[in-house]
Design a protein around this nucleic acid. Structure first.
Length: 769
DNA sequence: AGCACGCCGACT
DNA sequence: GTCGGCGTGCTC
């Protein structure tokens, strides 16, 4: 019977056929793309035998299944296998089992299901994001034939009256081997060619089995061992609380609020040592930033078996690490966001360092936040979750205040070092700025002179890369924008191009205004490249290095520059926010913030929080040695509460002020939020689609009768055009997060946007642009 | 998402 | 009659 006609014969079951249902083994399969499913398939006897682990259909492995009217073979994730009463004639059968072992434990399957539900994303898409591509493709492995002698091979050799001495020698060699050999291995040790081996296989005296093996192996590097450091009383108290949580066998969120330089890492390290004693594993999430080499080094120095997962790994390396973690060979996993999915067999602790960092939120679907996924996982595995930061996210802080999480403070730096003096430089004051041209004010210049003269090092932070941040015509006001985005182009002098920092589009920098033809076009705004020139001309006797995405493209370059700075090979380090994170330089006596206001006026309710974090974090980079240190913050808003609090190292005061603002404006963390973005190439169509979607959302809210829930917008997104697409956005706000998600689901049901228009929902958005 | 199905008009 | 245009709806 041709498969396409099948439905003709067994369409709807007639009433008298209804008790055709029978008890069968059924697998639920979720596909990575396409319709959501899950779809049920019959498990044939041949794939239902646990004694054959190579082809056992069970939850957590991938399966090949026939799908659609054409029965094309697709790969899907098996999420459950159960005995069910089904009408077997209406189900198709699994074709094959792809994975020879489980990729996702039952707990991880539940976690991915939670993510799909919470982040409004198909389950299959979550699964594809959780299992690395290198693991799915079994990168770095290949199929190899292994040879074992058949039962009674030697007797058979005689009864078959074979007389080849080469074959006999090969067979005897194989019999003498204590493990299965590959064909080349056997040829080598029996000192024969491939022909006699093939002959033995043909006669059935040697049996072959295929297995996947790793190709090549990474060399293990030996690391200098370090012993635990002495705790100060605050650290000891913090560790005690964490140890109690670890021993309780219960889930517990712990906000470890420790000022910069208070020794949080040492607390993590000893907590993990405690976990490792019980042969459990720990996951440590760090913001990417090439995984802050100093932190990674400390973990390597304290544990024998550390897996470091970073973005520069090849697929094969990632696969090897993943397998090694799954086998329980690893004590600690240090990695960025996605390391929260590490397949640890017996997880004991999750640590999120620099918990406030935005990199923990994924900016593509599934748009998860590693902190929230980690908390979900911690609850499922009944383990503690430590959220460490000098500037905790307000989300974490509020939960600590409400008693949902425990709060632990490390209010002092180790060895009682003082926090650095922070001063603002008011850039509105002409007396301070009228000092040549450039980005460095008189007080900052003076401070640099003093610091360098005293043999100290200087860090300068400027959160804008490139040379000039905009190209503008003073005659008509025209600003050169990207052809595809609604964004000003940045001038990069090195390659003499005008570059879009969002889509990487390059344009030729104009000599005259493209609009009014005035030749007076001006390159304005200071980026890190221009700052570097300014520093070099002001301080020609000192060496200076720049660190931003443009200079850090190569693998390892980050670590190289920082190590050189630590060795004192240059005195001035300038760069974007990547220099503000987790670094420890005892000889840095001055930190200058060129412009603290860059994040302050973003159309984003988190603008103040970001500003506070940036200033407070970079300020923490100094005063870590005997010489002490100071910080100068250049700003046009010295009286802004976020900047004032950062100057005073006063996180609680900042939090109190900012939380009052958020509460009054009904913003997170006091309300849940989902942002919906609609985009497409034709502005009018996008606008109309956004309006339709807005209407559907409002209707969904009204129909469900949800109080205090509102739809803001649609309106033009702050970045109105990106990569050629016009963008409109909406925000759903309300106290009940689940109701918000349900409203989006209801609105999406049966909604198909016009050709070319796409839309997405971002749950708990971080970026509002 | 992908693909077969079916109902149209233009062609051999 | 037959080919193929795309609109529609289903996929265990």
């Amino acid at each position: 019977m041709p498969p396409n006609q099948r439905n003709l014969f067994d369409a709807e079951p007639a009433p008298w056929e209804i008790d055709e249902a029978e008890l069968r083994t059924v697998a639920s399969v979720v596909l990575p793309t396409g319709p959501k499913g899950p779809f049920n398939y019959l498990v044939p006897e041949s794939l239902a035998d646990p004694a054959e682990p190579e082809r056992f259909a069970e939850a957590g492995r991938r399966l090949r299944v026939p799908f659609g009217r054409g029965d094309r073979e697709v790969t899907g994730y098996c999420v459950a296998v159960e005995m069910k009463r089904v009408d077997a004639r209406r189900l198709k059968q699994i074709s094959a089992v792809v994975d020879s072992r489980v990729l996702l434990s039952a707990a991880m399957l539940r976690l991915t299901q939670w993510m799909a539900d919470y982040y409004l994303c198909p389950w299959g898409q979550v699964l594809e994001a959780v299992v690395p591509a290198g693991v799915r493709g079994m990168a770095g492995t290949r199929e190899v034939k292994f040879l074992t002698p058949a039962d009674g091979a030697l007797e058979k050799f005689k009864t078959l009256k074979l007389r080849s001495p080469q074959q006999l020698k090969a067979l005897e060699t194989l019999l003498a081997s204590d493990r299965p050999l590959t064909i080349p291995e056997l040829a080598e040790s029996a000192d024969c060619s491939l022909a006699p081996i093939k002959g033995l296989i043909k006669h059935g005296l040697i049996e072959t089995a295929v297995a996947r093996v790793a190709t090549g192996g990474g060399a293990e590097q030996k690391w200098q061992r370090e012993t635990p450091l002495e705790f100060n009383p605050d650290q000891a108290a913090a560790f005690e609380s964490i140890r109690t949580a670890l021993d309780s066998g219960e889930a517990k969120g712990i906000v470890l609020h420790g000022v910069t330089g208070s020794g949080k890492t040492e607390v993590y390290l000893q907590a993990i040592e405690h976990v490792a004693k019980f042969r459990r594993q720990a996951i440590v999430l760090v913001p990417e930033i090439s995984l802050t080499p100093q932190t990674v080094r400390r973990f390597r120095a304290r544990f024998d078996r550390v897996a470091v997962l970073h973005s520069h790994l090849t697929d094969a390396e990632r696969h090897q690490h993943w397998q090694s973690i799954a086998r329980g060979e690893v004590e600690v996993i240090v990695g960025a966001r996605s390391a929260v999915f590490a397949p640890t067999p017996h997880l004991g602790l999750i640590v999120i360092d620099e918990e406030h960092e935005t990199t923990f939120k994924q900016d593509q679907a599934p748009r998860y936040h590693a902190r929230d996924v980690a908390w979900q996982r911690a609850q499922a595995e009944s383990i503690p979750l430590i959220l460490g930061s000098a500037t905790p996210s307000l989300e974490a802080w509020v939960r600590a205040q409400q008693g949902e999480f425990e709060k632990i403070s490390l209010p002092k730096r180790v060895m009682n070092l003082p926090l650095p003096d922070v001063m603002t430089v008011d850039m509105r004051d002409p007396a301070q700025t009228r000092f040549g041209r450039g980005a460095i004010t008189r007080p900052l210049h003076q401070a640099m002179v003093e610091a360098l003269r005293g043999g100290g090092q200087v860090i300068l932070l400027l959160n804008r890369r490139g040379f000039s941040t905009h190209i503008q015509c003073p005659a008509c006001g025209f600003v050169l924008k990207c052809e595809y985005c609604d964004l000003a182009l940045t001038y990069h002098r090195q390659h003499n191009t005008a570059l879009c920092h969002y889509c990487d589009h390059e344009a030729l920098p104009p000599r005259a205004c493209p609009d009014c033809k005035s030749p007076a076009i001006r390159y304005g705004g200071v980026g890190t490249q221009k700052l570097e020139e300014e520093v070099k001309s002001r301080f020609p006797d000192f060496k200076c290095a720049r660190m931003d995405v443009d200079t850090m493209r190569q693998r390892g370059s980050h670590d190289n520059v920082l190590s050189a700075f630590q060795r004192g090979e240059f005195q001035i380090l300038l760069g974007t926010q990547m220099i503000a994170k987790g670094l420890d330089f005892p000889n840095v006596t001055l930190v200058g913030v060129i412009n603290a206001d860059t994040a302050l006026h973003l159309p984003d309710f988190r603008a103040a929080e970001r500003t506070f974090q940036l200033v407070a974090q970079v300020a923490g980079r100094t005063g870590r040695g005997k010489r002490g240190g100071r910080v100068l913050v250049q700003t046009l808003n010295p009286e802004h509460p976020a900047i004032m609090a950062a100057v005073r190292h006063d996180y609680p005061r900042f939090a109190e002020h900012e939380l009052a603002v958020r509460r009054a404006a009904h913003y997170p963390p006091f309300t849940a939020m989902i942002r919906v973005v609609v985009r497409g190439p034709v502005e009018a169509v996008v606008r109309e689609t956004a309006a339709t979607l807005g209407g559907r959302l409002k209707a969904a809210i009204a129909a469900a009768g949800i109080p205090r829930m509102r739809v803001v917008g649609p309106g033009t997104a702050p970045i109105a055009r990106l990569r050629g697409d016009f963008r409109f956005h909406l925000q759903l706000q309300g106290p009940d997060a689940a109701a918000l998600r349900q409203a989006v689901r209801t609105a999406a049901e049966g909604f198909t946007p016009p050709e070319g228009v796409r839309w997405m929902a971002d749950v708990d958005p971080w970026d509002m642009q």
